[in-house]
Every structure is written in structure tokens, then in C-alpha cells.
Design a protein around this nucleic acid. Structure first.
Lengths: 240, 240
DNA sequence: CGTACTTTTGAAGTGCCTCAACGGTAGTGG
DNA sequence: CCACTACCGTTGAGGCACTTCAAAAGTACG
């Protein structure tokens, strides 16, 4: 299994790749290296030399305010490219760090250039992947602004489970969730104390539970309807 | 003055265009048409036939929750492309509508394709522009999650003034703000009543005021430091 | 088997919301 | 020129979601 397999699984959803493109991607032998949890991959203002790909593990984006407050602005799962946008913008405006011990592949800049210049379908599918990230951001912003903490947390769980299922890292109703309540708080924009209380509510309502760093959702449909989850924003189906 | 002038002013900040690219863009004669305020340009699930460019006026993106709540997820100013991302994703996941009477140019899909396929620098600069949008989203998300309403509103004012100055639609300390408190509320994710109170605070603190649909900032530096505004995320300087 | 981290719970406080009313202003038509 | 209407801005009072501070209990690990 190539380090790129999860990426290819994701890009397949873009609906722009042709059969002949898959070998091109599969045959790239990009080595993945291990990184310990809480390793900073990119910092603001830092110039990049390649594009990081998450092969296994969880990675997160975050911003730090002058006062020291932290907002997590994205979770990167296997198959996600971390800093394609930083490569184009030429500097990052936020931090990217590993959440867990992870395998990270760095695709050298020349390889990215070759892929995107030689094959307009692959270029298009990579662009597509950054636009899905943007769509997720719009949804998070909407959740933050309009949903209460219980619904927002439930929505986050729905999204995570679904995104992990695409890359075959989740079962039907459970997945890894290697994340402390402290970090969930910085995702939702609330305090850790309140995360804990809301989590209890979800548990008591049989909607979701976290046990031993795993998320368990007894009834997916019930959780979806609880928070009004509509997965269109993940752009999973490739229908024209 | 071409309808594309504001766009070119923006793309100049990408730092990837060469001198010879400017005539290519300037010579495109894309007609702009007038649209009344509150005209929906794009709706979710709708297929697009071209890319909308704001020539004059204000445009906004928003999402509607199942319960009917609205979150505004972006303001589009002259020079901004509305739906380049929808063209790639092949369907929109949100609404785009005019905020004011506006001039909108629709760049036909074939022209977009030609620009992006024939000229990799122009393609790159267009991609750059979508990534700046994404960067703004990350900052809004951070503001929503971590800043209190007064600072968030002040930050929004700082951003708006600066973005309008780039396209020469604002003076040093004032700009148009053709927007009701109701809409500001849906940007910040708070209630209109609270917007009103926070606005009064800013007025009383001599930080900012709205008079006759115009934003007035007596002392820009003071407003910046009040809310910790750091404009890096707008990626305005093209420095390598 | 201590040490450090994470989770849990309680109690009091605050930012923002809700509901409701009133005032201002611009446009419209008589 | 004045009424009428509609919308927007402003203000007050009470309530709720979430925060803050603090402490205790559970869990992982060398």
C-alpha cells in the first residue's frame, strides 16, 4: 500500500480523474516518515519546501490570538494535504501540528509542480480538494455562529465519522477520536468544562459517547437529525 | 475602465503575474450588468455556467440552517470572484446574493478555462485569490470562536476598510457600509440587539461609528490595537 | 506508586439572548 | 404638506447558555 492511497481515495470523489490517472498517482513512491504527537509541521510566516500529506494519524490547524487564545480551524485526516494552500500563498497564516503520532509524507515541490502542470485532471482534483477544505470551513463558521454547543458538537462528530469512513478508517458507528476535551473545546470555541457537560448530555441522550479515545455513535441517523447534519458540504458524491 | 480593473488590482497582490499578463486581463471585454440589491446570484445545488465577478457594489455569501437561521460566511467586494469554487466543485453549497445594487460581470466558462489552461501564471493567481478567501474564512472562524462581540466587530471593520482600500473604494479612515445591523448580526453570529449595543460602545470609545451607511474610523491604529488586528491573513504583500 | 494530565462536578458570575416597546427616518400617496 | 406605512435603530428588563474559578476523582505512565 502506497503512502498516497488515502489521498487517492479522496481524490476519487472529485469526479475529474480518469482511469489512466490512478496509476500515475499510485506509482509515486513518496516515503512517509513518523512524527510524534504535537509536532509542529508548519508555523506562520514559514516558507514551505513541499506539501505535507497525512498518511496516518490526525493533524490539526490552529491559530493563536495575541492574548494567547487558541482556535482550532481544521482537522486533517489520512488523505488530506496540509499545506497546498501555503505553497501557493507562499507563507502560512496559521500553525499545523500533529495531534497524534502520525505518518507524514512530504511531496517535494517539484513533484507537485509536475503533477499539476503535466496533468490538468490531477491539477483540477487537487484544487478540488482545497475547495472541499474551504467548504468545511464555511460549515464550521456557520456552526460556530448559529448552533448551540450540543448541536455543534454532534455535528462535528457526524462530520468526523463520515470523513473517516471515506478513507476506510472508521466502522459504521465508531471511529478513533484521539483528542482531549481541551482540544474539542478549542474546536467548538467553548470552554473545556462546557464540553464535558455537553458530552454528558449526548451520552445521556444515547446520541454519542467517547470511550477510551474512541467515538461511538449508537444510531447515526438519530445523531444526524439531532443536529440537522447535511453532508452535501463534504462534496462526497461526484455527480455532475 | 474595464470591468476587470478591480480584479486586476487584487490579483496584482498575488505576486505571480508578469508584466505581459496585465494586457491579457485588461483586454478582456466582459460586460457588466446591473443587479438590484438582494438578488440571489447562486443557490445551493445550482449548476453554474460562468463565474460571477463583482465590479461594483457589495455581495455576500450565506448559509441557511434547517431551522431557518442564517449565517453570513463572506463579504465580496469589487474585484472578488464569487463562485470560482462552485465552478470547480460543480455545485454550490451556499447562497450568494447582492447586498446592494451592484454591477456584476459574468465571465463565461470557456473564457475561464482558456485563461487557466493557457496561462499558468494567471491560473496560479486565480487559485491564489480563492486561497485568500479561505484564509479570511479561517480568521472569521477564529474571531467567532475566540473574540468577544466588541473585538470581533472591530476586527470586521478593520478588515473591510483595508480590503476596500486595496481596490480604491475607501478613504484612509472611512468607507461605504451599505449594511443593516441585522446583517452585521448574521455576520458576527450574534443578535441585532447586541450589535446595536456593541456599536454604541465602539462609538462611545471613539473607535468606530456608522453614520448614513458609512463606516468612520477616527483612528485606525487605535482600532487595530483594540482588537488585535493583524492583516497578514489578507496576504496583501507579495513578498517572496 | 508517585506524578502529571485529563475528566468530572459544583457554585457563582457574565455576555449575550429574548421579548417587547418606542423612536427615527425615508418613501408613498392623498 | 401631512398622514400612512414600512423598515431600521435604540433601549429596558429578565432569562439562559456558557464562563470562571476551584477542587476532587479518575487515568496513564515511568
Amino acid at each position: 500500500m502506497s503512502a498516497l492511497t488515502p489521498l487517492v481515495l479522496r481524490l476519487a470523489h472529485s469526479g475529474v480523474l480518469a482511469n489512466e490517472d490512478y496509476p500515475v498517482l499510485a506509482d509515486l513512491s513518496i516515503p512517509a516518515r513518523r512524527e510524534a504527537a504535537e509536532t509542529i509541521l508548519i508555523a506562520p510566516e514559514q516558507k514551505t519546501k513541499g506539501v505535507h500529506l497525512v498518511v496516518s494519524g490526525f493533524v490539526y490547524r490552529y491559530k493563536i490570538l495575541p492574548e494567547g487564545k487558541r482556535q482550532i480551524i481544521g482537522i486533517l485526516l489520512p488523505g488530506d494535504l496540509c499545506d497546498l494552500q501555503a505553497a501557493i500563498l507562499r507563507r502560512s497564516d496559521h500553525f499545523i501540528a500533529t495531534l497524534t503520532d502520525s505518518e507524514i509524507a512530504t511531496i517535494p515541490q517539484p513533484v507537485v509542480d509536475k503533477l499539476t502542470l503535466d496533468n490538468s485532471r490531477i491539477a483540477r482534483s487537487l484544487w478540488w480538494s482545497t475547495l472541499v477544505d474551504e467548504s468545511i470551513l464555511r460549515t464550521w463558521l456557520t456552526n460556530m455562529g448559529q448552533r448551540q454547543a450540543d448541536k455543534w458538537l454532534a455535528h462535528f462528530f457526524c462530520e468526523l465519522l463520515l470523513r473517516l469512513q471515506i478513507v476506510r478508517k472508521a466502522e459504521d458507528n465508531a471511529c478513533e477520536l484521539p483528542i482531549t476535551q481541551d482540544k474539542i473545546a478549542d474546536i467548538l470555541g467553548i470552554t473545556p468544562v462546557h464540553v464535558n457537560r455537553v458530552l454528558r448530555e449526548l451520552r445521556e441522550g444515547n446520541l454519542a459517547d467517547i470511550k477510551g479515545r474512541r467515538l461511538i455513535v449508537p444510531n447515526t441517523a438519530k445523531l444526524w437529525s439531532f443536529c440537522g447534519f447535511e453532508p452535501d458540504y463534504l462534496h462526497l458524491s461526484a455527480g455532475w
